[in-house]
Design a binder for these strands. Sequence first.
DNA 1: ATCAATATTAACCATTTGGTTAAACTTTTT
DNA 2: AAAAAGTTTAACCAAATGGTTAATATTGAT
Lengths: 206, 206
Amino acid sequence: MSELKKDNTENKILDAAQTVFIEKGMDGSRMQEIANEAGINKALLHYYFRTKQKLFEAIFTKAFNQIFPNIKSLIFSDKPFEERLSAFVEKYIDLLLKNPFLPAFILKEINRDPDFLASIIKKQGVNPEEILHMIEREMESGTIRRMDPRDLMVNILGLSIFPFAAGPLMQMLFFSNSKKEYHDFLKRRKETVKIFILESILVKKD
Amino acid sequence: MSELKKDNTENKILDAAQTVFIEKGMDGSRMQEIANEAGINKALLHYYFRTKQKLFEAIFTKAFNQIFPNIKSLIFSDKPFEERLSAFVEKYIDLLLKNPFLPAFILKEINRDPDFLASIIKKQGVNPEEILHMIEREMESGTIRRMDPRDLMVNILGLSIFPFAAGPLMQMLFFSNSKKEYHDFLKRRKETVKIFILESILVKKD
DNA sequence: ATCAATATTAACCATTTGGTTAAACTTTTT
DNA sequence: AAAAAGTTTAACCAAATGGTTAATATTGAT
């Protein structure tokens, strides 16, 4: 799998759990299946992670942190807004291309257990205020048009994430169910989403 | 519940099943819970709908058809494109406001069982080709800028649906977890999404 | 009123499932 | 090398779960 991770039992379990949980979700996954996937006895799962819930939380936390990475590091720099936003969209869709099933998984579990979601968000101290303020400053300085900065954030996330979360459906509806064609489409979206957003919000000085 | 529906056992079951399935999904729902919700014996569920799968399919089909309504009737008319798109976004977000949990439910189950999804799509003969061609004609006639019409469709759907599917998360991140504030935000999006899209694609003749 | 068809229930069943236990095997410590 | 600590397994268990059965109640036709 990855380069530095040791091939010990705990990691084998985590890898197996990730595979199964992400495909089938908490409710649809079976401890026995995870054990099989990891090539170990089921009792050993409970030796390392006492309960299914505990094991699931480990996987969900990891997945959530992967998909809500340090947005700050991406969006704070001295480059012009246009470039920062472009870089963000590109990096973010690239991230999703590497983990195409994470969005559906996260959305599924978010709706199943919002309380756990809250605890995670609090724990890792995501702070959207700064980003919203940054967007507001751009509106004040006139580079982008006035709007609710939360709309802009939701739009950016939606345009990036939705095509992954609804992948099977979009692929079926618009791409003759061709996996390759849909994947190419998603790759092109690194560019087209960027343009779509900028065309909408950039104030053109002529 | 609704005005004309009879209060017979079958409808009580369907209502109960809808409530439970939409909240907990196929895997998370229990036949016993549906029976309780309907106020009947569990065996009666199997008398009307032989298996859990059959009952689930009835609910999913209904939900899917609700959320993918006859787009055609909304988007084909002799009014200018700008108005047709505005009407569509408005009507569609209104529909979602009335069924705010459908998007998460659909996305969840779409990813669980894509084959069943395929059978439904085929059965009700959704045909996106017409809509894509219509969009292409608008680009040729110069009212909107050139782009992949599938991008536009995915964007419209994503901007409309994502804030519902990711509701709990967005509400927590950007709205202090206030249900009312988030609901008001979603209502405002009937307008802001429309503007966001049109600003991006409309060709301004000056 | 009677009988057949339909609707409803309580009790039951086989299987699945998350979790436990006690024993065996392996590694580390002394 | 012996003891202790850590790791792994086979067998087991109680609860939950989808589904069935046989008996009872209700409805509709004649």
